[in-house]
Design a protein around this nucleic acid. Structure first.
Lengths: 212, 212
DNA sequence: CGACACATACCAACCAGTCGGTATGTAAGT
DNA sequence: ACTTACATACCGACTGGTTGGTATGTGTCG
């Protein structure tokens, strides 16, 4: 089992196998049960590796939490970077395209569409600053990717709003995170989708959709 | 609750003392560290009672979680029922009054203004159905108190909106819950307040404020 | 007395983290 | 070519402290 190596370019592919599997297991397990209720043994079992492998790659459970948040930032970042809405010519269409894209992601089971870092930060914000900061970076970094388009949409319309592009970008994240909580409480994606619909309507109203 | 029997007067002070203190300790401790990370021993220490008292009043940790959610519903319910915004004549003013009141509550430390049930449901929605349902009832019940005013505001303006009063009421809860997550991640109430400002602006736009 | 509200003592299961060991690859010395 | 030395990746038994929960005792009040 250990020696999946032994072929071609040395252990490049098989290497990091346990680490990647642990990170992947962390995403689903923590989103399902939360960070505190997820045990190291459970993660190891889900990933099909041993405890030795866990503590070889992560110096503590907290370190795994930080790594999981960073892994989440990276994989979701790549996913959004490759999404089709970036192709729209009008910056407002790109902003609305983003939110509609988020809405389209609201399918399947609750643990599949909810947010890892939103879940983790609730439990760790006071007790594990390293995880909290990693989660904060993830959310802020993601919101940042919206700012330029919002700013451009404001400029294109010659608007001088009483709010900032940054605050609207963060507000979209607040609505999504809150929608996830509602989905968890009510056991389905429908409530979440309705809340996202209100967000879409808000952005359209803000930019005077229909009058443009 | 059940044991409020006995005399209407007389030595009532000490009675139920442990239960009330445990519930109170649960509110602050769970909001700070989350449900899973909060231990029974810790709760007992914070409440100044022993473990025997804990398991005398609650048959399990999960039962405490359910009771805490119900206690939360009741105390916050009384607080909102007594809030001044109910006195406004215009139903829209009552709706906006509610949201502005929520914004005014965003002071002090993060564990002081965040929501118990929003925190708990994230960790327990898959693993403790009884707690999840208690949290769902708390959120839905609270949202319900807004519906009549939203409905009245719609009727007063003769509107036929493409959304429902129920969905807007739930959306306000989503924004608040999401704002709490942002506050936890960024370590302050400011982000939360800005998100609530966007919610206020949305409601004003929805009802055509300025043109009424 | 007997029910109730608590306290004390205790336990089995579980937890994060440790440690000595093995398998494999790599690079330098000879 | 072959050893020596070191690094990486992983294994799994073990540990000491913690956890939720229990069994039983004690004081008080009606």
């Amino acid at each position: 089992m250990a020696a999946r190596t032994g072929k071609a370019r040395a252990g490049e592919t098989a290497k990091q196998d346990a680490k990647a599997k642990l990170l992947e297991a962390a995403l689903t397990t923590i989103r399902t049960k939360g960070y505190a209720a997820t045990t190291v043994d459970e993660l190891c079992a889900a990933a099909g590796v041993t405890k030795g492998a866990f503590f070889h790659h992560f110096k503590s459970k907290e370190a795994l939490g930080v790594a999981a948040a960073e892994h989440w930032s990276q994989t979701t970042g790549e996913m959004f970077a490759g999404a089709p809405y970036h192709g729209f010519a009008d910056p407002l269409d790109r902003v609305l395209g983003y939110v509609r894209f988020r809405k389209s992601l609201l399918t399947g089971g609750v643990p599949e569409f909810t947010c890892l870092v939103g879940t983790m930060v609730q439990e760790t914000y006071e007790t594990a600053p390293a995880i909290r900061d990693a989660c904060a970076r993830s959310i802020s970094g993601h919101a940042k990717t919206l700012e330029a388009d919002i700013e451009a949409a404001i400029a294109a319309r010659g608007m001088v709003p009483g709010w900032t592009a940054a605050s609207l970008a963060l507000h979209t994240q607040a609505v999504l995170q809150g929608a996830f909580i509602l989905a968890k409480a009510k056991g389905g994606a429908d409530v979440a989708a309705e809340s996202v619909d209100h967000l879409i309507r808000y952005i359209e109203l803000l930019f005077g959709a229909g009058t443009r």
